[in-house]
Write a protein that binds this DNA or RNA. Structure first.
Length: 85
DNA sequence: TAGTTGACCGGAA
DNA sequence: ATTCCGGCCAACT
């Protein structure tokens, strides 16, 4: 039984190229629909090269943030993969 | 152990 | 439509 953090990382890693998911969706799949803040905290402090955190965005359509080059880099990656903002 | 923080979300003004 | 407020969760100090 993986912890919430492990579950979140595994889920984000499973996001296909060109797809974008909200923090709330990731939290819901991980087991806590209201743990969007926890997901954000995990992403912000625990980035893994296997976990494409840039595919996780806010429900408002905002990019949220990116600890690997800034929001501009995140937007560029999403556009490069064919995702919409 | 308890308090504070943060890449959030939903509802109300 | 935009802006403000409260509430939820995990990690850090």
């Amino acid at each position: 039984m993986p912890t919430f953090t492990t579950a979140v990382k595994d889920i984000v890693r499973a996001i296909p190229k060109g797809a974008v998911v909200t923090y709330g969706e990731v939290a819901a799949v991980a087991g806590n629909p209201k743990a969007a803040r926890a997901v954000a905290n995990i992403m912000a402090h625990n980035y893994d090269p296997d976990v494409p955190c840039h595919r996780v965005i806010r429900t408002d359509g905002g990019l949220g943030g990116y600890s690997r080059g800034g929001v501009a880099r995140k937007c560029a990656i999403l556009l490069s993969e064919g995702a919409s903002i």
